[in-house]
């Protein structure tokens, strides 16, 4: 929701990043305020997943220009774990499997780490069990989720639910959901989207990174940005997503080519 006079959570200005000397992000500007849901759309290779990883602090990417302010902090100076503790959350497109570590152990460790950072109370295993089971109801998860190894042998839908469960536990200020709908059937998508919608409130914000418009039927964005070749080339309301769905991305490409031609 767009809230009047709400405070800015994320401010990205002219962000440039490269990997192995290849420029991927070529000057991104984006402002996200509390309460808002933004969608970043674009074709594969447009740089949208890179943008998500760069915000979360992935070490493979070199920042070559620009700035990112997150909750008044210089985000780019922080290692990934401090970004997470400061309230930034990335739901992975391909969540990592960790055989040998029980999900509940991992979830409690993450939860308590973030709680400690915020000066809040940590939970012992019993207290945490009650707490996490309550959150699991949001995502219609079975209790054996807790005892299984982290993501090991989980279906695509189960992995994504586990990501959103972590989002529910960690209560981030800003959640970046990378291709959350990939690999989900329609029932799983509905469950995951419902979970996200119930976590969204006027004090937090969400960035949805997605290839397809389908997800946006379930989580309705306030803004839609289109990325191409490492830049946000167009910003609009939720209707922009529908236009992309019907017209594809090619018309933007043409549009951009003429724009860049004009600026040259």
């Amino acid at each position: 929701m767009i809230v009047e006079n709400s405070k800015t959570i994320l401010s990205v200005q002219g962000l440039r990043a490269s990997i192995d000397g290849i420029d991927i992000l070529k000057g991104i500007d984006l402002t996200v305020k509390s309460g808002e849901i933004h969608a970043i759309m674009g074709l594969n290779g447009s740089g949208k997943s890179t943008f998500a990883k760069v915000l979360a602090g992935h070490a493979d990417y070199a920042i070559t220009g620009g700035s990112v302010q997150f909750e008044g902090k210089n985000l780019l100076e922080l290692p990934p774990e401090e970004r997470a503790r400061a309230g930034l959350f990335l739901a992975f497109q391909y969540p990592i499997e960790i055989p040998g570590v029980a999900n509940t152990q991992f979830l409690r460790l993450a939860y308590n780490t973030v709680q400690a950072q915020r000066g809040k109370e940590e939970l012992d295993p019993l207290e945490f069990d009650d707490f996490v089971r309550e959150k699991m109801k949001l995502l219609e998860m079975k209790s054996d989720f807790l005892d299984r190894s982290v993501n090991e042998g989980f279906s695509g839908g189960e992995k994504k639910r586990n990501e959103i469960l972590q989002m529910a536990l960690l209560e981030p200020k800003l959640s970046i959901l990378d291709e959350m709908d990939s690999g989900l059937d329609i029932d799983a998508l509905r469950i995951v989207a419902n979970g996200v919608n119930r976590i969204a409130n006027k004090d937090n914000a969400i960035i949805l990174v997605t290839h397809y418009q389908r997800l946006l039927d379930y989580i309705v964005p306030d803004y839609v940005h289109v990325m191409q070749a490492g830049c946000i080339v167009m910003t609009g309301g939720k209707e922009l997503a529908l236009e992309l769905e019907t017209r594809g991305y090619d018309w933007l490409h043409e549009n951009r080519r003429s724009l860049s031609g004009a600026s040259a």
């Binding site: 959350f89 992975f92 960790i98 570590v101 460790l109 993450a110």
Partner: peptide, 25 residues
């Protein structure tokens, strides 16, 4: 895997230890 755990707030040292433990487990 380390990055995944770091993105959940765990320090690099804790992330490495957890993954090492998991390997042995």
């Amino acid at each position: 895997e380390i990055f995944y755990l770091e993105s959940r707030g765990l320090s690099e040292v804790v992330a490495r230890n957890l993954l090492t433990y998991a390997f042995a487990a």
